[in-house]
Nucleic acid binder design. Structure first.
Lengths: 123, 123, 123, 123
DNA sequence: TTTT
DNA sequence: TTTT
């Protein structure tokens, strides 16, 4: 609820099925990754697709929805908060991981659409 | 110009003066870091400030403005694009760096305000 | 390019084909209307769809895209600037019209999807 | 909580003190108006400030904050939902009113800043 | 690691 | 005036 301070909005396709984790206090966590594909033109005028990968983290009800409906290849839109945590590897080097903690999730690939696509493929 | 696909908005204070870099083709680059301070309540009801640090990258005209006006401690708002690049360190370990490439920059700390503050301090 | 000051983002379906207008200086204008459908729960727990209608205004290249690809019923996402203009009617009463001047336009209904849907319907 | 469907972000100064209204069920409402000032250049290169006025509506806790802290001339940032309602005037003509129902409110003019400004003015 |  |  502090979207004026820190807010990320992304639209793209999932690179993997969500990985689920259940905590002691029954809190559910889902992790997945999202590709954003931005088309840009090079100096010589060619179209290039610039894929960026983003780590998504979903808690509670968003994690439930992720578990039920999110699959590799599906298109979604998310709004969330940008966070960075650090950890130290076995060699003592510090690493940073930036993640989007999702507040809001919207399916772009609709259920009916999936069904229609399957029907079309079956012809 | 693909803000519907990938867009970040942040408001906070700079943790450092911008570091400038000039490239062969005369393109200017500025790097700095921004803290967002989100106030949240713990389970026991205490107020905690959750500071997140973000890497900002500014090109061209935005870099010029950064060079002239951005200083450690100043409050700004930015809109940009979320990007992640990776590099391999000397030990062969892969690292990821997530950065916000700034499209738009707004000074929250205004010049008049700075002057008034200085005047007030001088009393 | 002042999205930090004034920015609207909408996702929904068009209620009409765009109306085109060509000005002397060859500038093209498209007008259309967009419905956003927000699902909310009433006090008694029922699901209600709250449709809001928004006036969209598109200039230049966005107007070209509107003319070619936007049709009643299509789903799109837009980012734009909120503007209000006033006019006085024949009875001398002032009226206000609020419009979103679109900066960025994204088709949610994809071409392939339309074709697949048509193929599925044809079975 | 449907910011992916319908979201407005504005930053500017208030044109009036909020008008308060208390409903039977103890729900509080505040209304005020916000100006966004966008600087643009004319064809001949002159700087022009384009002021846009927006109607803000605040409910519940946001209304409480508005009542306590919002005053004419103060600078704020808001995130909200774009809504349009219509009414028919005495002459039977339909009018539309577009309003931003505020979800989130941030003071840009800070308390310390006000105090410093007052101190500076008092010199 | 997605998709067209 | 859209759509599910």
């Amino acid at each position: 609820m502090k979207a004026l301070i820190n807010s990320v909005r992304l639209m793209g396709r999932l690179g993997m099925d969500p990985e689920m984790k259940l905590f002691d206090n029954n809190r559910k966590l889902a992790r997945t990754s999202l590709a954003t594909n931005e088309v840009r033109r090079t100096g010589s005028g060619e179209k290039v697709t610039d894929a960026q990968w983003h780590n998504l983290v979903l808690w509670g009800n968003n994690a439930e929805i992720a578990e039920k409906y999110l699959k590799k290849g599906k298109e979604i839109a998310v709004e969330g908060r940008l966070t960075t945590r650090s950890f130290t590897d076995r060699e003592g080097r510090k690493h940073f991981v930036t993640e989007i903690v999702v507040n809001e999730l919207l399916m772009i690939t609709k259920k009916e659409q999936e069904e229609k696509e399957l029907a079309a493929e079956a012809v």
